[in-house]
């Protein structure tokens, strides 16, 4: 796989790459109704991890979900992974790692991570409640 890490034959520094990823991600998440978390510290930390993951593994993967080495599985965890986990993330109003939140969110600390199992259970409960 061609690496986009190398630009003009020179290795880009981490800070520059973080800025580049930010610009690219913004374009992707905006039409999906998401924005970067207002918590700048967590955004910076997560982007830093992604740049390191990109250096190590070739792609800026989600720093909070496990890779298996299977392409079909792992490609769904390349940031921004919102399109592949839409229902789950929409229910939390954030992505799993919290890099992105719904545009309506001002305080990211009001949001909780909801496990996939809890999400399924609450969906089934709602179904049962319906007449």
């Amino acid at each position: 796989m061609r690496s986009y890490w190398v630009c003009d034959g020179e290795k880009m520094d981490t800070g520059k790459r973080k800025e580049q990823l930010k610009v690219m991600y913004q374009r992707v998440v905006d039409p999906l109704g998401y924005k970067f978390s207002p918590d700048e510290e967590i955004v910076d930390f997560l982007l830093e991890q992604e740049v390191q993951l990109e250096k190590e593994k070739g792609n800026p993967f989600c720093p909070c979900q496990g890779l298996t080495g299977e392409r079909d599985h792992d490609m769904k965890l390349v940031c921004p992974c919102i399109p592949f986990h839409r229902e789950h993330y929409d229910a939390m109003k954030r992505c799993w790692c919290g890099l992105f939140v719904h545009k309506s969110v001002d305080d990211p600390y009001e949001l909780q991570q909801i496990s996939l199992k809890d999400l399924e259970e609450s969906k089934n409960k709602k179904k049962k409640e319906r007449p």
């Binding site: 979900q65 298996t68 991570q113 496990s115 996939l116 199992k117 399924e120």
Partner: peptide, 20 residues
């Protein structure tokens, strides 16, 4: 019934997925 979303915390026999 979970994907590998971390942290995956086991407390006794219970499991909490996520920072809660």
């Amino acid at each position: 019934g979970e994907q590998m979303s971390f942290p995956f915390v086991k407390i006794g026999d219970d499991v909490v997925v996520g920072y809660n």
